[in-house]
Design a protein around this nucleic acid. Structure first.
Lengths: 290, 290
DNA sequence: CAAGCCGCATCAGCGTTGCTTATCGGGAGT
DNA sequence: ACTCCCGATAAGCAACGCTGATGCGGCTTG
């Protein structure tokens, strides 16, 4: 199974056309046809239906494998060349929106930094393939428990910050005066579902037990300011790390005391840390250790 | 990066010899030398030191990637051909020692079953590569929480059983009369460390907080009977799923009530379930649902 | 210290693979 | 029914990859 063949296969499957795939890959249509034929003969199974072009059952299966496989391949290549090439001057960070706490921002070098906001699931891939030098991922976890990240490649991750999480309530909310909230107090509440903002509610689901969390409004952007404003206006509750809950007019942040969850931020990097990336990583981990 | 080249690279690195690797792979020494040269040129980095032969820093890095990569490749091939080939008559199960509960044993077909006891970390790989049709993995987890398994390939897992865990104590132990035990009661106790038996203590570590679990005796076998006997003789405590704690002379099993952990068993399988494997999987999951 | 040997690199030769151009066959739209 | 579009197939050619032979450096041995 040549990765080359695999790549043309996924291209054909994506475009649903041999000729289109050939154009995109810079081959002739004949070559693509031969690639697919070679793959099918090698695996002893039909992978594509022709006319119309589409994956068979076995082909669907192969597609599920192909993505991670090619990703890992890129990751391996990137990781090795990174060790041999000269340390770069710039620094690219892949981050989830809520992973950039004030302390982290303060630690950034003054110039030459590129921030790339991504969905949390894409950050390991970005770091692995070298699209970013470092990744910052956050999430809800039990204290000192690691976040479970998809292992697309052998990456190193270490926690760099943990802080309490707060529930953001409109100031007029009956529970806004409480010193602390238990999730059980909020079983009847409506939530803001904000999958793009990095704090998925499903972690609350599983931590809170069987009761489903009901969502009032779904926000697909990544801007936390908007999210906080929505919460203040009473469109639903949301959980945020404490340092993000200051200065939200009309809203009150109440710490979540049960279940015991913290907002945890992890730094993730490949094997070779060189140049400014190494300096930043050292600083962030040292801060946490202190 | 041809997987072929990768395979010869890991072989050379493992045997620390070009000629030996050539012999094992059925190539000439010349071919192996060319393979390595091609890889090094492709990646633009030296991977091996010659005389003596050993991986460089970049080579070490590549080795870490190569294993999972080749595994995934095998898994993809196995998964696809499994969909196309005729359903087999036999049935191979990869299991951890404690994953085979009495209910599971009862559900096995009368003939044609091969059981393969493996370490838990190897079971996903065995299922992915087709070395086993189904895998049974157990572990300690919070109720209805999935076990975190290494995702070597797109596999499907579903829980098939959960049962309380018990601490196995010598009958004479001062705590043996208690109706239930908290882990906090046992901070001073000595434990049996049995990494091969499938219930690693480290899960207790993380669940129980910072305090280290001190081990009195390390048992590297996989036999639970021996483990139970050791516990009964006072060589240390151990945790076992309840159904494994009956009929241990001289020992008493006391349920662990805090932290709330259950012994969870999961069934793991690839994409194509056919023949007896499908029947068994259906039965086990149905039992659990009821 | 010198000779021999072992092991990796290099080179020339050759078979096979893999890509291209050209052509065929079949299904859909007009 | 004609035509267009798309994928399969055939022939040709270049490049790749393997083999066998040779070169060279280091380690062992007498």
């Amino acid at each position: 199974m040549d990765p080359h063949l695999l790549r043309t296969y996924v291209t054909v499957a994506r475009l649903a056309s041999f000729s289109e795939a050939a154009r995109e890959l810079g081959y002739t249509q004949s070559a693509v046809s031969q690639h697919i034929a070679a793959l099918e003969q090698d695996l002893g199974a039909a992978l594509l239906t022709r006319r119309p072009v589409g994956p068979t059952a076995a082909g669907e299966r192969l597609l599920e494998h192909a993505g991670p496989l090619l990703l890992r391949l890129d990751a391996a290549r990137a990781d090795v060349v990174r060790m041999a090439s000269a340390p770069e001057h710039g620094l690219t960070l892949a981050v989830t929106p809520t992973a950039l706490g004030p302390r982290t921002v303060a630690a950034l070098p003054a110039a030459g930094v590129t921030l790339r906001a991504l969905a949390r699931a894409d950050i390991p891939a970005a770091v692995a393939t070298g699209a970013a030098d470092l990744g910052l991922v956050d999430g809800l976890a039990a204290p000192s428990d690691p976040l479970g990240l998809p292992d697309v490649a052998p990456l190193t991750t270490c926690g760099i910050a943990e802080e309490p999480v707060c529930v953001l309530l409109p100031a007029a909310h009956p529970l806004a005066r409480r010193p602390g909230l238990r999730l059980a107090d909020l079983v009847d509440a409506r939530w803001l579902d904000a999958p793009g903002a990095g704090l998925p509610l499903d972690r609350l689901h599983t931590a809170g037990g069987a009761g489903g969390v009901r969502t009032a409004l779904r926000y697909e952007g990544t801007d936390l300011r908007t999210l906080a404003t929505l919460a203040a206006a009473g469109h639903g509750l949301t959980v945020l790390p404490r340092s993000f809950t200051t200065d939200v007019p009309g809203a009150v942040a109440v710490p979540l005391v049960a279940p015991r969850l913290v907002h945890r931020t992890e730094l993730i990097h490949g094997g070779a840390l060189r140049g400014p990336a190494a300096a930043l990583a050292r600083e962030l981990t040292d801060q946490h250790r202190e």
